[in-house]
Simulated assay, not measured.
Amino acid sequence: MYGEGQAAFQALRGIDLRIAAGDFVAVMGPSGSGKSTAMNILGCLDMPSSGTYQFQGVHVERLDRNQRALLRRHCLGFVFQGFNLLPRTSALENVELPLLYRGEGALSRHDAAKAALARVGLAGWEAHTPTELSGGQQQRVAIARAIVTQPLVLLADEPTGNLDTQRSHEIMELLVTLNREQGITILMVTHEPEMAAYAQRIVHFIDGRVTEDQTPGEATCG
Rank of each mutant, 00 (worst) to 15 (best):
R72N: 06
F78D: 10
V25R: 00
V141T: 06
L42W: 01
Q10V: 01
A113D: 06
E4S: 10
G5N: 14
L178H: 05
H191D: 15
V189P: 07
T37V: 00
Y53I: 02
L99A: 14
G103P: 08
A116V: 14
P193D: 15
A219E: 07
Q67S: 15
G121H: 07
A113G: 12
H128Y: 15
F55A: 13
R180K: 10
T185W: 11
E218G: 11
A123G: 12
T190A: 06
I147F: 11
R119E: 13
N40Y: 15
F24E: 07
T220H: 07
L42K: 02
T129M: 15
A26G: 08
R109N: 07
A7N: 14
P151R: 11
G161K: 07
N179P: 15
R119W: 07
T220Q: 10
V27L: 06
T149D: 12
G136E: 08
D23Y: 05
V58W: 04
R109P: 06
D64A: 09
V25M: 03
R119P: 05
L71E: 07
C221F: 01
V79F: 04
I15A: 02
Q54S: 01
G222K: 04
Q182P: 03
Q138E: 15
D213K: 00
E104A: 15
T215H: 12
T37A: 00
F205N: 03
V148H: 05
R109A: 04
S90G: 14
I206F: 02
L107W: 15
V95E: 10
P98M: 14
L122A: 09
V141A: 11
C44W: 02
A11V: 02
D64M: 10
P193L: 15
R18M: 05
L12D: 00
T165V: 15
L187G: 00
L85R: 05
A69S: 14
A197P: 02
M188P: 01
E132P: 01
V141Q: 07
E212W: 05
G161P: 12
S108G: 04
G121Q: 08
S36P: 04
E126P: 04
L17Q: 00
G43M: 09
P193F: 13
L86Q: 10
K35L: 03
D164R: 02
Q81K: 05
Q200Y: 04
D23S: 08
P151H: 10
M188V: 04
E104D: 11
L178A: 11
G121S: 09
A106Y: 13
T211L: 00
R140Y: 05
Q182S: 13
A116T: 11
N179A: 15
G222F: 02
R119C: 10
L154R: 09
T129F: 10
A197Q: 11
H74W: 09
G217Y: 04
T185M: 12
L17Y: 01
F83P: 07
A118K: 00
Q138D: 14
L133S: 06
A8S: 10
L174K: 12
A115Y: 03
I41M: 01
S33L: 05
Q67P: 14
A146C: 14
Q56M: 15
E93Y: 10
Q54I: 03
R201P: 01
L175T: 03
M195G: 06
R102C: 12
R18L: 03
T160Y: 08
Q67F: 09
P159Y: 12
T149I: 14
Y198G: 04
Q200V: 09
E96Y: 04
V95Q: 12
L155P: 01
A8L: 04
R13H: 01
V58N: 12
S36D: 08
P130L: 01
